[in-house]
Design a protein around this nucleic acid. Structure first.
Lengths: 197, 197
DNA sequence: CCTACCGATCGGTAGG
DNA sequence: CCTACCGATCGGTAGG
């Protein structure tokens, strides 16, 4: 059973799905519990039979995404392949997440500031660690002479944010397919814009 | 006189500067007029002697940035140089904006959703047109055989979002200088990660 | 899961 | 630029 289906199976799951869609569209702070309740089809007070607070919803969304990220990078990190292959795999993973798990990833990426302590610190630490692991893979590639001598943390920022740009593709009724999008992105990031002579 | 100084000269300018900083930090919806008033050093009610509404502040920030973008791309578009040079110039312009005019650019990029009509539609149109002009430059480069055969709109999204990633560099007490950052970004975007044999 | 309701806070105005 | 205040809306609870 796919994740979205598993979620929909319970009322709490439905609340999380609707919340992610609304947080993405209007932002966490601008989404009211009454808006959310209406989308779910119950009264605002009834939401609290399924969730403890508005912030708990955001926590569920953000940490779900963080867990998938961490699991994936650990698997790729320890896999036996060339560094450039690891990076390509990581890029393709992020692109897939963005096209298939759009609402959750977007919210986790843009609305995590509204988390409260201790969740805020926890999330920021996980984020920082993820980027460090990613940068370490790039450093490995530079050492092995597969990758240009660049500043690895900068390269990580570029790649992660470049992929988050798919947001606009997602909204714009795609003139190209998800597959074409993925191939274009990987090519641009790995080989650059300039045509080799 | 630099722009920030010109702004600070008037009370309204000071309000705009403080507002941009707070909208960036907490988001537009989560920033209250009382928070803002405190940062400016007056009572909340007194803000309204300088501005008409909370939304007017956001409009000022977003359209200021949009105007700078439009002026710049028109100048670059009509300049006499190779296409790859135009793109590099555009990249460097965006990177400079992000390092020198951080708060305004960030807010314009992430909080414009909270604009109200007719400003919302106006802003979205300007944004779309900007991207079209950028994509046209890339198409020109493909035709002239300077740039790889890629989907131009996708390349635009990648580049603009990659640059917005500087946000994290900005926050992280930069281990590398602004100049190094710029050179790294331009190199990665133009020539890619992979080292040529 | 609903009705009824709480205290807090919001953007903004009146009047000086 | 301030004091005083408005109606609306917020997240959340009590009690059934």
């Amino acid at each position: 059973m796919a994740k979205a289906q598993r979620k929909k199976a319970s009322k709490k799951g439905l609340i999380l799905i609707k919340a992610a869609a609304m947080f993405r569209e209007k932002g966490f702070a601008a989404t009211s519990m009454r808006d959310l309740a209406e989308a779910v089809g119950i009264e605002a007070a009834s939401l609290y039979n399924h969730i403890r607070s508005k912030n708990e919803i955001l926590e569920a969304i953000c940490f779900d995404v963080a867990n998938v990220y961490n699991t994936t990078i650990d698997a790729i990190e320890s896999s036996q392949q060339k560094t450039i292959g690891k990076i390509e795999q990581l890029l393709r993973f992020h692109i897939k997440q963005m096209t298939e798990n759009y609402e959750d990833v977007y919210v986790s990426d843009r609305e995590w500031k509204h988390l409260e302590e201790p969740y805020l610190s926890n999330f920021q630490t996980q984020r920082r660690n993820y980027r460090k692991k990613f940068a370490a893979i790039i450093e490995e590639g530079i050492t092995k002479n597969e990758i240009r001598k660049i500043d690895a943390p900068t390269a990580v920022l570029i790649m992660l944010h470049a992929i988050s740009g798919i947001e606009s593709w997602h909204r714009s009724k795609a003139k190209i397919s998800a597959q074409e999008l993925e191939e274009n992105m990987v090519m641009i990031m790995i080989d650059g814009l300039r045509k080799q002579p």
